[in-house]
Structure formats: C-alpha cells, structure tokens
Design a protein around this nucleic acid. Structure first.
Lengths: 224, 224
DNA sequence: TACAATAAAATTGTATACAATCTAAGAACT
DNA sequence: AGTTCTTAGATTGTATACAATTTTATTGTA
C-alpha cells in the first residue's frame, strides 16, 4: 500500500463526489499513470471508504473520458494518443474562438477588469518557482474570458476539453521565457476584447492556444 | 406501478449500461417528464434489478446533464429552461459549422455518397406517418456529416448537445411542409460539401439548425 | 379549523455479502 | 522441458443490509 492517494475531505458532499474529485485530481496530476488499473478494493482501502462510492466515482470518470472501462476487467486510466490530443485541440480552438467572439459582444466592464487582473496576476508569476500557481493563473485568465462569454454550457465543455491537456502542460510552463511570451499574448487578447475587436481576438486566441498545444503534442511524441 | 419502463435486454452489456440506455431513452422520449423524481427502489422494482445498477446509471445521466441531483433527495429529470436551450443552440451552431468545415476539407467519395443517400432517405420519408423514422433519418443525415468531419471528440460532443433538444423536436417534424423544406436544405448542404464550398456549407448549416431550434424554443415558450 | 410537536414511513447514502468471471499458479501428463 | 488441465485466488458485477436523513402522517392543543 503506497498511500499515494489522500481523500480531499468535504463534510457536506457525498463520498462519491469526494472520491471523484480525488481520483480526477490524481489522474490529471499524473499520480495515476495512463494505463494503470483502478482496482476497487484497493482504492476503497486506500481512501478508507467502501466500494460503492468508488464505483460511482468511476462511472463519472468514465463519462468524462478520464478512464476506460474494459468489461470484467474494470477501469484503467485512459491513455491519450496523439490522435486524441489533435482532436481535442481542433475542437478546443473552435470553441475558444466561439467563446471569445461572444466575450467581445457581451463583456461587461467588471468582467473586462477581471480579465485584465487575471492577466497581470499571471504576468507577476513569470519568474515564480511555484509551477502549480502559474498553471492556475493561466487557467484563471481563460476562465475569466469564458465567464464573459456568458454561456454556461460552453464553459463546461471547454473546461472538460482543457482537462485532457492538463497532465502534459506542466512541462511547458517550466520555461520562463515561454511564460513571458504567454503573458504578452494574454495582454494582446485582453486588448482585443477591450476594443471589441472580434477578428483580432479570434486570431490571437487561436495562435495562443495552438502554439501551446502543438508544443505539447510534439513533446509527447518525443517521449513516446 | 405503471409499468411504463421496459428494459432494453442485452446479454453482454453490464446492467448499469442497459439501465442507462433505458432511462436515457425514456427521458428523451418524454416518458419521464422534466422534474419527475427518479426513485431508486421504484425503478429497481420496475426494471427488475437491484439498486446498484440503477444508481450507477443515474451517475452517468447526471454527467450527461439529463438528470439533476438534489442532495438527499436523489435524482430528478432535468428541466430545460429557455436559457439552457439558447445556450445549447449557440454552442451547437458553432460546432456544426466547425464540423462541416472539416467535412468540406476531408470528405471522401464514400462519405459524400453516404451523405447523399441519407439526404434522399429523409426525403423519401417526407410524407411518412412514422415520426420516429423521420426523426432518425434526420439524425442520420447529420451523423454522416459528422463522420466526414473525422473527429471523434467533436462527434461525441455534438451528439450530446443534440440530445438536449430531442424531446422538443418531434412536434416540429409533424408538419410535412416543414419536412420538405428540411429536405431541400439537406440537399443544399450536400451540394455545398460536394463542391467543397466551406463558406456556403457553413451558412446553410447555420440557418438550417438555427431555424429548427428557434422554432422549438418558440413552441416551448408558448407551452410554458 | 389551524397549527405545532411527535412518531412513522420512505428515501438516499454507505457498507457488506454473494455470484460470476477472469487470472495465474501449480500439478499431471507427454 | 513443454503443454494442458485443474484449482485457488482475485476481481468485477449484482444484490442486500444497515445508517442517516428527510418527508409524511398523526396526534394533541389552542
């Protein structure tokens, strides 16, 4: 028993949701590796709950696409192929453009300010050692744009798509030069939204997302 | 006990998946009404299984957005508000344009033929009494386009979005005049793809989807 | 009758038990 | 030694049991 996993305690949430969040986080952080089997009894022991909430959490992970069910062999952490990543990238770029288009039409002054602030926060972490904080700041910037788009459903789908990339993204953010470049792009995106310049905003977001994710795909290919 | 539900038997599938499909179908066909509570013991009795597969199926429906969980009150069929439908419509149009753009770039001769065939099949049902067949033929036409787009992930997301509209769509298809109009639009869409005319294809699919779904939204508003 | 307090029933959340199936190790045989 | 058969163990799939909470019904009182 490695004790790798630790329940994220939360009194008022059903155990299935707590387990779901815990496993989801472990998969996205790479603590549970692609291909690794998720065995119910083992997980139940490790997390100190029964199999029931484990199984229900696995059903949810299955629909999120984070685990793959093999009949009579149970769940294993989904392996993401290069083809999968390319598909995700295509859809994500399309939806990011859609979102930023809506954002240009609908953004309020408060939301605009929130976007600016998130961008500056990311910039302030350009030289930080705390990679997790950097990653979260980046997520936050994009979330502020999704908020401005004013479409819950779109927001939810985009978040799910981003999830698929999370595990491979940390490496990218280690390079401080890259981070400064990202910060500049964030600023350009912000300015485009501020001027309600839909075309520019779409162009900027497209190259911003594409560049990052293509680098990630390349790196993945190197590693095999 | 009304005996409203009937398990879709399938030997080699786990019961949870069978129950999932059964409940999903019942919700989409409107046999389970929005707001209706899904009580586990009752469903278990009615379907002749235990609570375990029922619960797991409900977890899946939850992530599909077809049921809403209320803590300690269990699941109820999700009510779709006009706002929800508008959000779905926005995203669906965006993704349908994306898909048809890819289809124009990538469609093979076989796929093009499959699109044409699906369009003709729909047209042949223009005066049919069998509404279910008409609805399925329409789904099939769009599926052939999604196939041609060659992106599994996109396909999956689009199917999920369409699901949200299913319950409200039957009414629309009852009108044979409308059906003929749809058939004409299908033909125009097919022609645009055949000529790899991305711009026209996007314009056609946009108005095709928007018109249908806006009518559905209007009708829904009338009914309350 | 209306309202409050309490008790009973119903329902969900969680744990455990049992059944079916798969995996793997070891024995028997060639 | 290698191969097949058998058997024990492990694992998933399903059913049931128990606990906690909520809902509903009932009783008592003003």
């Amino acid at each position: 028993m490695t004790g790798k996993l630790q329940l994220i305690a939360d009194d008022y949430l059903p155990l299935r949701d707590v387990v779901f969040k815990t496993l989801r986080g472990a998969i996205l952080r790479g603590e549970l590796e692609p291909g690794e089997r998720l065995m119910e009894i083992r997980l139940a022991n490790e997390l100190g709950v029964s199999r029931t909430p484990i199984r229900e959490a696995i059903r949810m992970l299955e629909l999120e696409g984070l685990v793959l069910m093999v009949p009579r062999r149970g769940a294993q952490v989904a392996k993401i192929t290069e083809k999968d990543l390319k598909e995700v990238l295509e859809v994500r770029i399309g939806l990011d453009e859609l979102a930023i288009g809506f954002a240009c039409e609908r953004v309020t002054l408060e939301q605009l300010e929130a976007i600016r602030e998130a961008g500056e926060h990311f910039e302030s972490l350009a030289d930080s050692e705390d990679l997790t904080a950097v990653a979260e700041a980046d997520v936050r910037f994009h979330d502020r744009i999704y908020d401005a788009a004013g479409n819950q459903r779109l927001n939810q789908i985009l978040n799910n798509l981003r999830e698929q990339m999370y595990r491979y993204r940390m490496e990218y953010l280690k390079d401080t030069k890259r981070r400064r470049k990202l910060a500049d792009e964030h600023r350009a995106i912000y300015e485009a939204i501020r001027h309600r310049d839909t075309e520019t905003a779409k162009r900027e977001i497209r190259s911003h997302v594409r560049q990052q994710e293509e680098t990630i795909i390349l790196r993945m290919r190197e590693e095999g």
